[in-house]
Design a protein around this nucleic acid. Structure first.
Lengths: 217, 217
DNA sequence: AGGCAACCGGATATATTCCTCCACTTGAAT
DNA sequence: ATTCAAGTGGAGGAATATATCCGGTTGCCT
């Protein structure tokens, strides 16, 4: 592989991470190419599909997500480990909209991504086991619930992420209360009423008013 | 207004409700027109913007959402009322993807929609008040939390709605546990492990070189 | 019945994104 | 320095969605 090609590949990955983090995984690929100072063809040659680019761009983050669970498993107390694990993952989602999407999506063609997901999930199953034994997690919690928590957080971030970032932490507070981890104290602070209202975003592309106002309401 | 025009308007609204419920609020407007057996121009003449059409199409559902809270307020026990209110609203979201989006979106131009939202929210504030007095709702719950619950449910539905519809009810179970409503019993059943895994949907448009993507209606 | 304003719907202009083709450029091996 | 496979980037076709234009149609009033 030629050196300039390798350099371009690197630039593309960095640009992809930036753009996807900001705009989500449906961002135009031309934008990624432009940010990387690279022709669109170069991007497509290296990554023939969006899925391939996403897999390459997010593999490091996916790996570090899987690492988190192993860090958690290395701690002596499963209960505090569980809490700080969930805090970390929710925070990861908040700071990267693209990663939030990737976490609730499967990439059938990208075995490395799916391997990391498997690793993360298997570790979580173990942590669940230990937490139940330590009686700081309700017995009817199932590991799959993590997926639903992640999807729920994705929804909150999607709507309120920018305007009311505290909402994510508050959501987690509720989940912690619900799953029965010991002594979780008071809820995390709520976003202001104002921010909560603004979190309902305006319609995109609210068309410029034409001749007459909408009728038939 | 001519009678055929009124009929077309009705057909458009019905078509819009169907299409948006199934495909979400970003569905192509041509699809709505075609489903209504109406030219695209007719649709645009009546509803110059997507926002106008959405507002008109979802106003009835928005009103009935606001009615729900008043039904709840009419019940003697705020605690059971709160639970069944949340159950109803979560179920509404599950069965209409478009409405799910509309609930977490503001329509600055559509005062009727915003009026209904205001009515629903004000009623909820009252229900929160009563529930706290009855001590079946934690004191640090704030009415805005409802919005975040709705956003969270939207996220779960977005990913798991079709494959694992039970996820919505289970999410609500967790929320009920967390907010302190009395004696809510065991969690609602979890979707199967299989379903939970499948809930992470494949990437859209997974670029296979097939000439025709599976198009259906 | 006749006339016309209201109404219709396909054709069309515009815009965006995807993805490929191909003429040109360049790193590096000799 | 020469050579050429590896690499590049922009032009442009295909697909999709938005929004408007305009020739033709039709309900409704007299």
């Amino acid at each position: 592989m030629r050196s300039d090609a390798r350099l371009n590949q690197q630039k593309i990955l960095e640009a992809a991470r930036d753009v996807f983090a900001e705009l989500g995984i449906e961002a135009p690929l031309e934008r990624v190419a432009r940010r990387a100072n690279v022709g669109i063809a170069t991007l497509y040659r290296r990554y023939p599909t969006r899925e391939a680019l996403l897999a390459a761009a997010f593999l490091p983050k996916m790996e570090s997500w899987a690492d988190f669970i192993e860090i958690a498993l290395a701690q002596p107390d499963p209960c505090t480990a569980l809490v700080s694990y969930l805090e970390s993952v929710f925070a990861m989602q908040l700071e990267d909209r693209g990663f939030t999407d990737v976490l609730s999506l499967s990439f059938p063609e990208a075995s490395s991504i799916e391997a990391a997901r498997e690793r993360g999930l298997n570790g979580f199953i173990e942590l669940v086991q230990r937490s139940k034994s330590a009686e700081c997690l309700r017995a009817d919690f199932v590991p799959e619930d993590l997926l639903f928590f992640l999807m729920a957080n994705a929804g909150v971030i999607h709507s309120a992420g920018v305007v009311a970032p505290e909402a994510t932490r508050r959501l987690l507070s509720y989940f912690l209360q619900a799953i029965g981890v010991r002594e979780v104290g008071p809820l995390s602070a709520s976003p202001s009423t104002e921010a909560a209202r603004q979190a309902m975003r305006r319609m995109p592309h609210s068309a410029v008013a034409t001749s007459h106002p909408p009728e038939g309401e």
